Amino acid sequence: MTELRRSNKQKKRKWRKIVLIIIGLIVLGIGIYIFSLWRSLSTALDAMYQPIRETSEKRLEDISLEKSDPFSVLLLGVDEREGDRGRSDTMIVLTVNPNTESIEMISIPRDMRTEIIGRGTLDKINHAYAFGGVEMSIDTVEHFFDIPIDYFIQVNMEGFKEIVDAVGGVTVENDLEFSYGGDHFEKGTITLNGDEALNFARMRKEDPRGDFGRQLRQRQIIEAIIKEGASLKTLTNYSEIFTALGNNVKTNLTFNEMVKIQKHYKNAAKDIEQHQIKGSGAMIDGIYYYVVPDEERQALQNLLKEHLEIDGA
């Protein structure tokens, strides 16, 4: 009987060792996975980071993400092709206020006529990027809205397809049947690969809403990418996703700033208000422009200043 008990105890110890070994291997495997994930993320962040001037001249006091100060972001969708610097075909200003738990989003028409800061000329606002890159785009947008732009995020639209394919394609709701670039898009729920998503986001002339319709589709693709990127199925594909982001996204946000925004500002996404700039088309010297009345510009300035809690709104 004693020998039997001893044998049973030995068997239990053996199985405990086996279980501990299995658990250890699992933990080790997770550790290797996390290390690999972190290494890929760090490489992508290094490739994405593009510093610009320290602080906007329109910022009288530095913002503190630790203290949850409201901040602004300029989103740039740049159509860069080989041998061409490109233009910012998509320009969206975001102001983020964690105190009101809200985001104000203003889509800027690519043909909007305004002063290009740094050149002293009146031109289409999307030409600012072609003339002076990110910094001239920021300076011009700051001048138009009379607010500081704290951060920028630039997405290369030509490389958009690489990001879409990395997350396994995207699904969107299409409200307009059309064909573009050799692809046909039916109305309703459609699933797109990278090439299709790029054509879906680029079409403008066949849309009765013009640039506003294209901006809507581009926002749909961006939202779908975020949704797919956050899903569990992408965990096994993280390396390809990070590589695609590193190749096609630039920002002056540091990793620490991203962590602080995630920590202190995540509730701001509860309420997102989207605005379109009201104006009218006009031919000036034989060139088409989108002209914004002074009262509309002033109303937008007041809206953003109030949301950023800046004096003078």
Rank of each mutant, 00 (worst) to 15 (best):
E3N: 12
G24M: 08
G29S: 10
F35S: 14
W38R: 13
W38L: 14
S40A: 15
T43C: 02
M48K: 08
Y49H: 13
Y49I: 01
T55R: 15
K58E: 11
E61C: 00
I63S: 11
S64E: 08
E66G: 05
P70V: 05
L74I: 04
L75D: 03
L75Q: 04
M91P: 01
T100K: 15
E101F: 01
I106C: 02
P109T: 05
R113G: 02
T114S: 14
G120W: 12
I125A: 07
A128Q: 03
A128E: 01
V141M: 09
F145L: 13
D146E: 15
D150K: 05
Y151K: 09
F152W: 09
Q154Y: 06
K161V: 01
D165H: 08
A166D: 09
T171A: 07
D175F: 02
S179D: 13
G181T: 07
H184F: 10
E186Y: 10
K187Q: 13
T189W: 04
T189C: 03
T191P: 09
F200P: 01
A201K: 03
P208G: 09
Q215G: 08
Q220I: 05
I221W: 02
N237I: 01
S239K: 13
F242E: 07
L245Q: 03
K250Y: 01
F255G: 08
F255C: 00
N256K: 14
I261R: 09
H264C: 00
Y265M: 10
K266N: 12
A268I: 07
K278D: 10
K278E: 13
G279R: 09
I284K: 04
Y288N: 07
Y289F: 15
V291M: 05
E295I: 00
E295P: 00
K305A: 04
